[in-house]
Design a protein around this nucleic acid. Sequence first.
DNA 1: TTGTACGCGTTATCAT
DNA 2: ATGATAACGCGTACAA
Lengths: 357, 357
Amino acid sequence: MSFDNERQGASTVNRRKATMRDVAMLAGVSVKTVSRVVNDEPNVSEAVRAQVVSAIDRLGFEKNLMASSVRRSDGRTHSIGLLVPDISNPHWGRLTRKITDLLQERRYALLTGSNDRDSEIEEALLRAFTARQVDGLIIVPSVSETTSRQRQLIANIPTLYIDGLPRTGGADAVISDNEGGIRQAVEHLWKIGHVDIAYIGDEQFMSSARERSHGFREAMLERGVIPRPDRFILNIASQQSAREAAASLLGSDTPPTAVICGNNTAMLGVLHEVHARGEQDSVALIGFDDHEMASVVRPGITVIAQDEVALAQTIVDCLLRRLDESDSSHEGEIVRIPVSLICRGSGEIPPRSQAPL
Amino acid sequence: MSFDNERQGASTVNRRKATMRDVAMLAGVSVKTVSRVVNDEPNVSEAVRAQVVSAIDRLGFEKNLMASSVRRSDGRTHSIGLLVPDISNPHWGRLTRKITDLLQERRYALLTGSNDRDSEIEEALLRAFTARQVDGLIIVPSVSETTSRQRQLIANIPTLYIDGLPRTGGADAVISDNEGGIRQAVEHLWKIGHVDIAYIGDEQFMSSARERSHGFREAMLERGVIPRPDRFILNIASQQSAREAAASLLGSDTPPTAVICGNNTAMLGVLHEVHARGEQDSVALIGFDDHEMASVVRPGITVIAQDEVALAQTIVDCLLRRLDESDSSHEGEIVRIPVSLICRGSGEIPPRSQAPL
DNA sequence: TTGTACGCGTTATCAT
DNA sequence: ATGATAACGCGTACAA
């Protein structure tokens, strides 16, 4: 016959996590006292505190934040949900990195997801976040909140919108100066003689894309140019379609002398086509969002760069400030972060001398 | 005078989240029955189920996964922690994206963090994950588990190592065929006549970096070449230092005819220097890890590409399989994922014809 | 098939 | 300053 209970628990295996009760027993105090020490509450004598701290160390105790959340009156988990279009896009990757780091300093953990501009994926992710009781949300509103369902999901959660305007009133938003950036780009090209400038922009359901295309249109109109439809290409969502748009532009009898791209994906598509045609030194190009390789290619790529450090800092500040507020009678605040033009060559190519008719 | 209590609660604001109790009351059943419906347990009549589902819908009820975790015998939260060196590095960004998507399909949420190869940050992140009761961990072991403290932290959590060998026995790992990849690169260059090949590799405390540099050394030795120290540059951790190493290589009297880079950061640094010197068509270059712009620059960059789709799929499969196992008497399993050489031009540049002395 | 009683690890309340 | 007790929202065990 064999022993019904094999020797277990003798080694370090199978040792369940220590709880406040374990700590309390070892330290010879009540659970509440342990709780006080763990949460840095007052009214604990130094002697007892030391005793408890020692027990915590010996047992390797760690507070179960989930149990804490269940009991707390505010239900806080010290977790934040971050929802971006695509974390593998360099811009969102860098921003995510900076936001995580800043939140980590304040002991917040980050739940992340990419919605891929798909409403169903987005709803599933929001559901995953809310079911885990996140304290706050950072959302890029692409297709979000089109349904009342989604609005209801996050109704009671402090939400900060980034890169786009909230559809709901009363919410905060941190957004780059999209219109100003494109205006800078147009002005930059205009100064060196470009008149026939094309714009390739993203899907217009995103407010950031609308602001950028609007900036282009306005800047051109102010200079007396009414952008022709074939110079104002919108709703380009992939690198491939951007490349096709560029091919059509550059392959025409009267190609534009400069192209402005509304995001980094479009820029890559256009760049690909420009280099394939060997026209990298004859057509001016300005992209939106910086890129690791922007200074490696020849010529270097001139871009309108978002200030990712300022964005991340502002995003975290705004969200945490909102979390600290008890009242929700707060007016939605929209913070604009300036962008900057980084000149590397591709945007400084002069227009081809136009032979008079 | 104004009303002390403004109208509130009349609209959707201020309505706390519905609990199972609320659902139970509305449906006229017990809490346990609601629990059964929510968790798809058997033994609920269709009529009652429909009644409960309707109540859930009306109240917008969502299960509190944290409370669930506290009560469950296995403590599961359906959350996974992912720890990579730097999520803003394109390789890790893409891998994170794919892992998130696959886990999301199985209703798992992902907590993410970048350790930046810093042991303290890593410990803080592990602490953040374990305090939130993650069911499993996916870790890139750079400096991890150097302390017994860290080992203890994750002692009872199913952990899958990626990109590097676990220091602990019994753990699973999913790793690219690093050595084979570099061997392929050497063979590729050798075939077109390169003999003087340099290697620029990452910090050697990472097993993946060691495997790559080992692959280079062995492949060269097998071909009768003992790599000179100035052709075998290791512990390059930044783009800048990679560029400096390249400058030193290419600026010498007898520059190598080909360079292999051990990761994409080093590749960017080398590429920068090569293009700045205008030698992009005279020195062969092969990178490790693919890059968005690898096909945009001229010549296109030949790379040893990791199979990120297979990696992500295998990682998720392995981890979930391990989570499903009740016993922990499992031998550590190491899965190798093949890599592939993608030829785009830079790796197909022949050696400069060497003038005989 | 359905419900009751209890407990998870923690915090809130009120006592001492 | 410290502790006893209840409660959070839910799952488990078992009774009905």
